[in-house]
Nucleic acid binder design. Structure first.
Lengths: 206, 206
DNA sequence: GCCTCAATGTATTCATTGGATACATTGTAG
DNA sequence: CTACAATGTATCCAATGAATACATTGAGGC
């Protein structure tokens, strides 16, 4: 371990090794990303902010793309944990549980609006396998909830998987809507609840 | 007009003025964008491809962002025209008309998958006013269809506008799903039809 | 206790980029 | 035919992504 001199910041001796450069870079990258977008993100600037040399980040991320991929993957993991936690405490009928799910999902999208575009990277751009896997895992959760409800007869059967896709699309679309601010002044909770209830009830006149 | 020598490409005299640099740049930009994403897009490379100097593009787009905004706006206009055209020929009940609408929308998203992320730019990044307006216009169309159907009593009334948001979210989500390839091997037409029908019927067991 | 070695940072270099500024060429309207 | 606005060009600069060679560190085997 190095001798650190915290007395005078001007002459403070920084240890040769940062300690947790990787996570520091990721955290700061998410900040910058939220403020200035992908174009405004510079590896060198991240290095400067972390008080480290130009090429240090390369030890952790071979590439700018690699950093973005890591950020996206981390995003899926965080999302997954929050969804699991939320579902554990969710009670009530299918609608209520779906609302909890959707709300958690949309809240995450709002808090990490910088991450979503990375997570939704179109498949045309070559994707990390790990990223694809994380994607699948995240979307497996709502589907599980739906299938369990179907097994209990709480919702109509679905032979073709089209209903599943509808829920997925609705969730995805909600995040985009909220991220782009298209919900106007409609409170987030009202929006989500309304969408799920609408999906449950259908559009046909009663 | 300049004298052009098309005989020998090596010594061909190019006119001082390109003629339609702006649209050439936009077209080529969309190509590159589809292949290599925003990061892989370079103004200079566009200039080279167009056979024009480094700084020529600046006459038409003050900024790289300006080019992207123009691309997004153009995208909304094209989308609007296609939606209008599709709706004119659409016949049948609400479901059928909604399906036509959704299919047109998703088809556009697939054909121009490079454009969608630009069009869905989060509001946190300062947006061109023209872009916001184009956005509103594009989303006004499906809402109009929905409201007309409601006036005729084809779908249930909606006091809070939550149903409207549900349709919007579903449309948005569909494009994201398709763009990221999450539909798997499900044919596009089946997917869209299934989603709209599911939305009409609702999830509740019959 | 010492030595090797893998992990992690640093120093330096290079081509490319976005952007700015001053200048050249053109068609056109008066 | 001349002045001018539009459109390209030439040239410069700081910053970036990326690559390569070198330095520092701590941990594990001896």
């Amino acid at each position: 371990m190095n001798t650190l001199d915290y007395g005078d910041p001007m002459t403070a001796v920084r240890p040769y090794h940062h300690g947790n450069l990787r996570s520091t870079l990721l955290r700061e990258a998410e900040n910058v990303l939220g403020e200035r977008g992908v174009e405004g993100l510079s590896l060198r600037e991240l290095a400067r902010t972390a008080g480290v040399s130009n090429s240090a980040p390369r030890r952790h991320f071979a590439d700018k793309t690699a950093l973005l991929d890591a950020l996206a993957e981390e995003g899926y993991e965080r999302l997954g944990r929050r969804l699991d936690a939320a579902l554990k405490t969710a009670e009530g009928d299918v609608t209520a549980r779906l609302v909890v799910f959707a709300r958690t999902y949309v809240e995450f999208a709002v808090e990490h609006r910088a991450l979503l575009p990375l997570m939704h990277r179109p498949k045309s751009e070559a994707r990390d396998d790990a990223l694809s896997a994380a994607n699948d895992r995240a979307f497996a959760a709502p589907l599980r909830l739906l299938h369990e409800a179907r097994d209990r007869g709480d919702i109509a059967p679905d032979t073709s998987g089209r209903v599943d896709m509808t829920l997925l699309a609705l969730l995805q679309g909600l995040t985009v809507l909220v991220a782009t601010g298209m919900n106007g002044d409609l409170p987030l909770d009202t929006l989500v609840t309304g969408c799920i209830e609408t999906l449950m009830a259908g559009l046909r006149p009663c």
